[in-house]
Design a protein around this nucleic acid. Structure first.
Length: 703
DNA sequence: AAAACTCCTCTTTTT
DNA sequence: GAGGAGTTTT
């Protein structure tokens, strides 16, 4: 009976996808078509029916969130402990392999992992040294990252490049960058994938070992894979070809960081005997939402066509509104959300407001705040990226690996100990001369009798002393090491209270984590947003909305220049991605979808006239409620115009009241005062009632 | 080492 | 128009 449960509540293509084995499989899973369900059930099916060991199924996802969900669901299906399984992100899986095998590539197995910020600071350092305009570091970092994820080595790049101008400089920086990483025994995120692929390529025996130990490979969000990830999958799957990838080319929105949609097309060529299954039944949205989004995405060329359908019915029409400017748009969004809430149609947590760029959240936040609507913004600086947290982590990293020059530079004068740029420059110079790490160089300087001022020598000695002492200790967990760091450095003394509290929080969160696990985790796992308050509207970019769903979705700023973003206007492949972004946004909605654009918007410092997004033209009008307001409409009640007797009435129009019998309703009208006061209340599902508050036991419900 | 000043940039982002 | 970073000033 358990085996039947595995295949229950599935439609035909889903069942087929789960049961297909024996040749490579590509599952084209439309938005909301139950792809996670397919992957998790397939995992369980392989274990229960095909008798594969859970440890022999290599399952890769793109984000930690997805990996955790898979583990959780598979754990439930198989009622087993998933700790030992190979379910994880590309990066964490590769990390796991490399910690065991990287010695074959000439790295130490306790290599350090550099995150973006470390990567950037290393690149800046190199630019400074090579006398290249430093402000370019961000662009250069992303170019290098894309080169790496496309399997182009510095040598290759220098060889194939034109050898002039910017490319030549980029090539030199890239070369130096890889060199410095190696010297620091550090890998960046791209290296984790790249070096695993190289390991398998250069060491066929090791490759064969892993091929043998994995009976099946499952890949989630396949449209987001880059070339190096694709290569890795090819290497791992070679021979057995027991691989199943799940993805949706229409939801590929990460080209800018190297994702290669063509992997879906090439898959057919590279994996002969490929079986393709389309999942087209949508379990998320109403037909109107599917019709609108489906028509918009249909205009993209070269897509694997899917026709999403649902048995949910039409639902509400999609609403498109044109507002005067971004304040009005925000006000419209806030009023509409309030209305949905007051009518009891949605909780605040049902609602998401999505936008193209983070900048847009400002106006929306102001609008929601004015209306007293609780919200949270998903974005930006995660806990681990705060300066004080990264400083403490840098100490731990340096203690774990004294070759880590990036961490050294970060903390050599933090907290301030009078070691300035000129001293650091001397150290850098000396280190280069001896091709030694910065830390070891300092250690030499302290010991030797060279021409360094004794006062400076003292300061350096105290730093060396701290690190060496920390290295000698043994620590049960990361928290102990951190406490020792704070103890020896007095780091907290220089911090404002809030920042100090952050550090204290960090320490208490790692009391049961070993130092090694902690370092892996901080690098590879962005911590989940801590505050997810009671019931609040979610604000986020279209990119971060991918993979989520909400009963009601607002998509704002649908204008030329915003969506599509003005930088994507030239390249047709960029424009296609903007369209997919719009598509991803719309398909997050389950029941209600509100689109809006404005006629004038202030963008950076200037105010611009805006055109509605070209994507709006593709929307079928019959699924849509079209509101083009030329005149700004004042929804809000101007308090000064309300007659005096209404002003003092018990209830404001729109406020929520609770009736002992009919439940919660929305106040439509108020009249009279005191004993004569009357209110008209709409109770959803019951109807409009006229009540006398002094008799009816009405209770005001605060929002 | 903090404060004041100028300059620059200004998608999207997970690992 | 604002926030970040680097530089100069105190």
């Amino acid at each position: 009976m358990a085996k039947d449960l595995l295949l229950e509540d599935l439609n035909e293509p889903q069942r087929e996808a789960i049961m297909h084995t024996g040749s490579p499989l590509l599952v084209l899973a439309g938005a909301g078509s139950g792809k996670t369900r397919v992957i998790t059930r397939k995992f369980a099916y392989l274990v229960k029916k095909k008798k594969l060991s859970p440890m022999s199924i290599f399952t890769v996802t793109f984000t930690n969130r997805a990996a955790e969900e898979m583990k959780h669901r598979i754990c439930g299906l198989l009622s087993m402990d998933v700790k030992q399984t190979w379910i994880g992100t590309f990066h964490s899986q590769c990390n796991k392999i490399l910690r065991r095998e990287i010695k074959h590539l000439g790295y130490k197995s306790d290599f350090t992992i550099y995150d973006d910020e470390d990567q950037c600071s290393l690149i800046r350092h190199i630019l400074k040294e090579l006398n290249i305009y430093e402000a370019l570091y961000k662009g250069i970092a992303s170019r290098i990252s894309i080169l790496k994820s496309s399997l182009i080595t510095p040598e290759n790049f220098l060889y194939q490049g034109d050898g002039f101008g910017f490319d030549e400089k980029l090539g030199r920086v890239y070369m130096r960058y890889q060199d410095e990483l190696k010297r620091s025994d550090a890998l960046d995120f791209d290296d984790l994938i790249l070096l695993t692929a190289r390991l398998f390529e250069e060491h066929p025996k090791i490759c064969a070992k892993y091929q043998r130990s994995f009976d099946y490979i499952l890949v989630d969000e396949f449209q987001d894979t880059n070339l190096s990830q694709y290569r890795l999958l090819q290497l791992m799957a070679a021979g057995q070809n027991n691989i199943c990838v799940v993805g949706d080319d229409d939801q590929s929105i990460y080209k800018f960081r190297g994702a290669e949609v063509n992997n879906i097309r090439n898959f057919e060529k590279d994996f002969p005997g490929l079986k393709i299954i389309k999942l087209e039944q949508n379990y998320r949205s109403t037909q109107n939402i599917l019709d609108v989004s489906g028509r918009v995405i249909a205009s993209n060329p070269n897509r694997k066509e899917k026709r999403l359908w649902t048995d949910k019915g039409c639902g509400d029409k999609v609403c498109y509104s044109m507002l005067g400017n971004e304040e009005e748009e925000a006000k419209f969004v806030a009023k509409t959300i309030k209305d949905l809430y007051l009518k009891g149609l949605h909780e605040y947590s049902d609602v998401a407001v999505l936008y193209r760029i983070n900048l847009q959240s400002r106006a929306i936040e102001d609008g929601l705040r004015a209306e007293g609507i609780p919200y949270h913004v998903l974005s930006g600086v995660s806990f681990y990226h705060r300066k004080e947290i990264k400083d403490v982590i840098a100490y731990i990293k340096l203690v774990a690996n004294t070759d880590d020059n990036v961490s050294f530079r970060r903390i050599i004068n933090s907290p301030p100990r009078g070691i300035g740029i000129s001293t650091l420059a001397k150290i850098e110079q000396e280190a280069k001369k001896n091709s030694s790490s910065l830390y070891n160089t300092v250690r030499q300087i302290v010991k030797s009798n060279n021409s360094v001022l004794s006062s400076i020598k003292e300061r350096l000695a105290s730093f060396v002393n701290i690190i060496d002492l920390l290295r000698q200790g043994s620590y049960k967990n990361a928290a102990e090491l951190m406490k020792a760091v704070l103890n020896k450095t007095n780091y907290l003394d220089h911090l404002e209270e809030e920042r100090a509290q952050n550090v204290v929080d960090l320490i208490s969160s790692v009391e049961n984590v070993s130092v090694h696990n902690f370092l892996d985790r901080t690098a590879l796992v962005a911590v989940a947003e801590t505050d997810n308050p009671v019931s609040a509207v979610s604000l986020m970019t279209l990119h971060s909305a991918k993979g989520l769903e909400f009963p009601a979705v607002f998509l704002v700023g649908l204008e030329e220049g915003i969506l599509p973003y003005f930088k994507a206007l030239e390249e047709s492949s960029d424009m296609e991605e903007e369209r997919r972004l719009f598509y991803v946004g719309m398909t997050r909605a389950k029941e209600r979808l509100f689109l809006s654009s404005v006629m004038r918007r202030r963008f950076y410092s200037k105010v611009q006239d805006q055109e509605p997004s070209r994507f709006i033209k593709d929307i079928p009008r019959d699924c849509c409620q079209w509101i083009e307001k030329i005149q700004p409409v004042h929804h809000c009640v101007d308090k000064s115009k309300i007659p005096a007797d209404q002003k003092i009435s018990l209830f404001d129009i729109g406020c929520r009241v609770k009736h002992p019998f009919w439940g919660i309703g929305v106040v439509r009208e108020c009249s009279g005062i005191g004993e004569n006061a009357k209110v008209t209340v709409n109770f959803p599902g019951i109807g409009v009632k006229r009540l006398v508050p002094s008799i009816a036991n009405l209770e005001r419900v605060n929002i």
